[in-house]
Design a protein around this nucleic acid. Structure first.
Length: 579
DNA sequence: ATAGGGTTAG
């Protein structure tokens, strides 16, 4: 910290020093100076001090500044606005509203900036009532032509469910600047009105990166990746957000290859990825089961000292779990200092998929005892853990606790787990009852689970019912016919087996070989049953025989080739350089 | 004042 020069007034010294404060420590030193010079009543200085406090990145600076603010004997409107804005930035809209009301009670003059902040607070808490009251006040105070106030109102109405009211207000604005357009565009995207967003986007008098990126993201989340890509290609300027929006769009739509390919192009274009890009890439790598790729992304994050957060950690632990490295997944999870419902759910599902049901359920109780509320996805993991471990009564209990304790309506995924759990355990009729009584339409997965259970527990009658439903829903899936004919063969109903074969032949259904894939040394190999295309297939089958896993089936169909997973040209070089 | 990321049955 610079020592104040002698000769200038203490006020000037303090003001100068404030500008140089980059940490809370620095601010505390200046505060000591202010107190020593009895300047703590100096309104302008204190306001400057608090503004500096509120703008520091340190998480302790905000409460520190607020506590000082609350001791201020007579704060003016300007200072109050600063504090309200600080609450908004900290993601505490309710507090910002509270402070605004407090300010009104003290009869402090409210300017248009204060009103616009309060309206943002109302939008943040989805408080339509507060929003309407503020709208009235804004009109009374003559802020009907203020762009900031009107833009905030547009956002508030959209976020509290009144998108058409928002549009009406937007249209009535005497002057609509670029930000107002972008807000309207973003709100259309948020409420899923992608056609309206597109129309507005095309009609806008001018567009900036925010407009383009909002549109790319909107189209991508609406599932229209081709449309998103079109806008992406049309945009002249592309920043890390444009690329990340496109990449996450592919990753979310389970097109991990496209996501990784676009990342390669992003590097060629010379745009540096950040932690948000990394999170999407990890999810793509997990989808592919590409452990080497996942590790490379992890290394990149470490080497570039990217700041970790819950989202990045969750995608990291999920990647490791999906790639079979559950130990690394647990290491990440245990290292995390903040765990939200997403992190817990991902870890629980990962353990469940690795057959570690007991540990998964243990984590679930730990999550509850820490006061983290589960959501629907959490229960998918919990039920799937019960399923893998054959824990029927506990599974039932967890299922019932969803609605009973946590107020979560089970969806088709949960019913799927339950039916599978009951069916595998031999409770075929109970499984069928669940399907019949559920408030949602059964899908093929449910009937397929029941049919599979019927095969294991040899129930021809129920199998027939399930098979009929399956063929009604998905007549093109050859697996359904094959599975049912297996049940028939088991019961020595050879006439039936022949009948199924005939039906398949008549409807032109062929058995397509399914394939699996595994990554070895960064190369993903796809293979089919009986595949002998690998140069060392003799060794592989010898090992399978040794492990008694070989089905003994003969080679069928064509051979799927190896897919290169390791073609990140320049990746390792760049991370070396950047480290 | 406005834009991007993580979990989800078989």
């Amino acid at each position: 910290m610079r020592i104040p020069r002698a000769g200038s007034s203490p006020e000037q010294e303090a003001m100068l020093l404030l500008h140089q404060c980059n940490t809370l420590d620095h601010l505390r030193q200046v505060q000591a100076l202010i107190l020593k010079s009895s300047l703590h009543r100096h309104p302008f200085l204190l306001a400057k001090f608090l503004r500096r406090c509120f703008s520091l990145p340190s998480p302790e600076a905000l409460p520190y500044g607020l506590s000082l603010f609350h001791h201020h004997p007579n704060p003016d409107g300007f200072l109050c606005n600063t504090a309200i804005a600080a609450h908004l930035r900290a993601g505490r809209p309710a507090e910002s509203l509270r402070l605004f009301r407090h300010m009104q009670r003290l009869a402090i003059t409210v300017d248009s900036f204060g009103v616009s902040l309060a309206v943002q607070g109302g939008a943040g808490c989805r408080d339509a009532r507060a929003g309407c009251v503020l709208h009235g006040q804004a009109a009374k105070r003559g802020f009907s032509a203020d762009v900031f106030v009107q833009t905030a109102l547009v956002e508030m109405y959209a976020k509290t469910g009144g998108i058409s009211m928002a549009r009406q207000l937007f249209d009535e604005m005497p002057r609509r600047d670029l930000v107002a357009h972008n807000v309207m565009l973003g709100e259309y995207v948020s409420c899923g009105e992608i056609a309206a967003a597109r129309k507005l986007f095309e009609e806008m008098p001018s567009r900036d990166l925010v407009s383009w990126n909002t549109m790319i993201h909107g189209l991508a989340v609406s599932g229209d990746l081709a449309g998103a890509r079109e806008i992406f290609e049309r945009s002249r300027e592309r920043d890390v957000i444009s690329w990340s929006s496109m990449i996450s769009g592919y990753a979310r739509r389970r097109l991990p290859g496209e996501a990784l390919e676009l990342f390669r192009e992003m590097q060629v274009a010379g745009v540096s990825p950040d932690k948000v890009t990394m999170a999407s890439l990890l999810s793509a790598a997990g989808d592919l089961g590409a452990l080497a790729t996942g590790r490379m992304i992890h290394d990149y994050v470490n080497k570039n000292r990217m700041e970790m957060d819950v989202k990045l950690d969750t995608s990291l632990l999920d990647m490791y779990a999906k790639c079979g490295d559950i130990e690394s997944s647990l290491v990440v999870f245990e290292r995390m200092n903040e765990r939200d419902v997403f992190a817990w759910s991902a870890m629980i599902a990962g353990l469940a998929n690795h057959g570690r049901a007991e540990y998964a359920l243990e984590l679930f109780s730990e999550m509850l005892s820490q006061g983290v509320e589960p959501n629907g996805s959490t229960f998918v993991g919990v039920l799937s853990a019960c399923n893998h471990a054959g824990l029927v009564s506990r599974g039932r209990a967890y299922f019932n606790s969803m609605a009973g304790v946590h107020g979560i309506a089970p969806t088709i995924e949960h019913y799927g787990c339950l039916v599978d759990l009951l069916g595998r355990a031999g409770h075929l009729h109970e499984a069928r009852e669940v399907i019949m009584a559920m408030p949602v339409e059964p899908d093929a997965v449910l009937w397929r689970a029941l049919l599979g259970a019927c095969r294991v527990h040899k129930n021809l009658e129920l199998a027939r019912e399930a098979a009929i439903e399956l063929v009604k829903m998905e007549p093109w899936v050859e697996g359904h016919y094959v599975l049912f004919s297996n049940v028939l063969a088991q019961a020595s109903r050879w006439d039936g087996v022949a009948g199924v074969r005939r039906t398949m032949k008549e409807s032109g259904i062929k058995k397509v070989p399914g394939s699996s894939s595994v990554e070895v040394d960064g190369v993903v190999y796809a293979f089919i049953a009986g595949d002998r295309s690998h140069p060392r297939s003799e060794e592989i089958y010898a090992m399978l025989d040794e492990m008694n896993w070989s089905t003994g089936k003969k080679l069928t169909g064509d051979v799927a080739g190896a897919v290169e997973d390791d073609d990140f040209s320049g990746w390792s070089n760049e991370s070396e350089l950047a480290s």
